[in-house]
Every structure is written in C-alpha cells, then in structure tokens.
Simulated scan of single mutants.
Amino acid sequence: MNTEITAAGAAAARNKKKMDDLTVVLCALTVVGVSATAATPFWPDAWGRAPSIGVVVLAAGLAVFTALHTLYWWRGLDEAAKEAHKWAWWWGGNLGFVVGGAAVVIAALAGVNLLPAAVPHTDAALIALGVAAAFAAQAVGYGVAWCGWWFARR
C-alpha cells in the first residue's frame, strides 16, 4: 500500500514538473508571438491579409500546450472521474448537439436573425455561427450530463 502511494506521488511530481516546463515554453512563445510582426510567408491571397508570424507561432504553441496539458490532466484522473467525463461527453455532447442544432434550424426557418446587427450577413459569418452554436450546444449538454452523472451517484 505504501509503495502505491509513493509511486502515485512520484507520478504527480513528474506531471507537475512537465507542466511547469510547458508553462515556461508557453511564456517564451508569448514573447515571440508579441514581438514577431513580419507577415506569414506563403499566405494565399484568397484568404485575405496574412497574420504575423508571431501570431502563428503563438497559436501553434497554445495548441500544443493545450493538448499536452489535457493529456497530463487526463492521466491524473481516477477511474470514476474518467468514466464521468466519457459518459457526459458521449450522451451530453451528442444530445446537446442534436437539440442545439434543431434549435438553430428552427430559429433560422422561423426567420429569426441569428447574427448580431454589427456582423455582416455573409456565408462565412453564418458558417462561423453554426460552428460556434454546435460547440456551445455540445458544451452545455456535456455540462448538464456531467453534473447529472455525479448527482446520480451520490
């Protein structure tokens, strides 16, 4: 029993060290991202004005940091918490997507203006709204299902 506790403590310390190292790298990428202002090379003209290379480096760094942080966070969870998240994502995310998607379609067919007045009504804006609505609906469904999973088991 004592060996298991020691091994778990050592694993937690290694994860913390990795997260601390990742945080230092992210801070360095932030400095580069703010200071590098040259336009991104090889940017297609059809996509509009090119972002600065610093913004691209920062975005890529944030993506890697988020993925690695999630990996270390997931490894640190116990089996019950993992099951709660998996169950909530499957049921809550899917049901939230279906209900949210149906709500957006019904509102659009009813003639409700879903975009703010300041946003131009273009195809790109409507696609972005659809993606944001889908993500929001899945997140709300996930949150409700996660709370329900833990409430049912208390």
Rank of each mutant, 00 (worst) to 15 (best):
K17M: 12
T6N: 13
H69W: 11
A107M: 13
K17A: 14
W89L: 15
N94M: 14
A63R: 04
C147T: 14
I5H: 11
A28G: 08
A134I: 03
L126E: 02
G148L: 09
S52Q: 09
P41I: 07
V99P: 06
A145C: 06
K18H: 13
M1F: 07
L95K: 00
A118W: 08
A134H: 04
F42M: 10
A80E: 15
A108R: 07
R75K: 15
A81P: 01
R153A: 12
V32N: 03
P51C: 08
L129W: 04
V140Q: 00
K18G: 05
W73K: 09
A134G: 05
L29P: 03
G143I: 04
W89S: 14
G61K: 05
H121F: 01
H85W: 12
F151C: 02
A133M: 09
Q138M: 15
F65M: 07
E83K: 14
Y72L: 11
L29C: 14
A12N: 07
W74Q: 04
A139F: 15
N2Q: 12
S35N: 12
T30Y: 10
A38M: 07
V64Q: 01
A118S: 15
L26W: 05
I53P: 00
G92A: 04
Y142N: 01
G76A: 12
D20V: 09
L126C: 03
A12S: 09
G141F: 01
G92V: 00
V55M: 13
A46N: 11
D21C: 04
A11M: 14
